[in-house]
């Protein structure tokens, strides 16, 4: 193979002169292709509008737990920040930590006392913490019960009683809002 002096080339069959001519606008047709951005901007605008409409300033107060199926309700109000008591068919939790089992609550108490001790104590602690952190504010006594729809009232009444004894008189039940013509009720 003969040795040739160095010069710009791609392959032996493709001369860079052709590409150079095209890139340098020396060719007949320009290689610049404008991008059509209209469809992209339309899509982004629609996405922003949809996300803005579903935006909630309060954030996520309740997380749906896998073992809890919530009931539906037509007359509902917006959620507020409050201690969340999760009641599934197996376990009772307060803000995610277990405080009792359903088997314990289904048993009849020998003394006739409905109070769930651990739940009551933790609620009292939360109430005291609230009063320490908000000295000027009145304690509203709201607790949210996030219960499975198959749970019996026997379990719920013990939880509600424990809440009432601990100072949480206003019990709210978490529900899935059913759409209706009017907006939220009670506000």
């Amino acid at each position: 193979m003969p040795i040739k002096p160095a010069h710009p080339h791609l392959y032996s069959s493709v001369s860079l002169e052709v590409a150079k001519a095209k890139l340098g606008h020396a060719g007949r047709k320009s290689l610049n292709a404008p991008l059509n951005l209209v469809a992209y901007i339309d899509m982004m605008t629609m996405l922003v509008i949809f996300l803005l409409m579903s935006f909630s300033a309060t954030g996520e107060i309740l997380f749906v737990q896998k073992n809890i199926v919530l009931p539906n309700a037509q007359n509902w109000a917006e959620l507020e920040r409050a201690p969340v008591i999760g009641v599934s068919k197996d376990v009772v939790t307060l803000d995610g930590s277990q405080v009792a089992t359903a088997d314990d609550l289904m048993k009849d108490s020998n003394t006739g006392d409905f109070k769930v001790t651990e739940l009551h104590d933790k609620l009292v602690t939360l109430k005291n913490n609230y009063k320490l952190l908000h000295p000027g504010e009145e304690f509203n006594g709201i607790a949210i019960i996030q219960s499975d729809k198959g749970v019996e009232f026997k379990v719920l009444k013990k939880i509600m009683y424990s809440c009432a004894v601990a100072g949480y008189q206003n019990v709210n039940f978490a529900v899935i809002p059913k759409t209706k013509a009017a907006g939220p009720a009670g506000e």
């Binding site: 922003v48 579903s54 749906v64 007359n75 959620l79 009432a164 206003n170 039940f173 529900v175 899935i176």
Partner: peptide, 23 residues
């Protein structure tokens, strides 16, 4: 792009409400 990213991060997908009851 910034707005879409922010709104996607802060979006609340599970819409829950409350039913008030007193004791």
């Amino acid at each position: 792009t910034c707005m879409v990213a922010f709104l996607l991060i802060t979006a609340v997908w599970s819409q829950l409400a409350r039913l008030e009851a007193h004791q």
